[in-house]
């Protein structure tokens, strides 16, 4: 029973993650792409937890939540509005 639920959770998370990854590459504005990459990082953290790797999940959460978003936002602010 638990394994069925876990399989459904991993497949749903994986499909959402792949759709979001494609969307991050084809969406028009760069700021939207940065927000969507934040969602991909969040899904990766969930998958790490499903793969029995809580240490890796905690690291991915602490890095992907704030730090990598701010790095890309800084670059977007410096480069300017052109796309």
């Amino acid at each position: 029973m638990n394994m069925t639920l876990l399989a459904a959770a991993s497949m749903g998370t994986g499909i959402m993650m792949l759709v979001a990854a494609v969307a991050a590459l084809v969406v028009k504005k760069l700021i939207s792409a940065i927000i969507i990459v934040g969602f991909v990082s969040l899904s990766a953290s969930v998958l790490f937890l499903l793969m029995d790797a809580p240490d890796v999940a905690i690291t991915e959460a602490s890095i992907g939540a704030a730090i990598s978003t701010v790095i890309f936002l800084w670059g977007r602010g410096k480069i300017g509005g052109q796309e």
């Binding site: 700021i31 927000i35 934040g38 969040l42 939540a65 704030a66 978003t69 701010v70």
Partner: peptide
Amino acid sequence: SFLGVLAI
């Protein structure tokens, strides 16, 4: 996660 949304 609050920090990331705050930065955005």
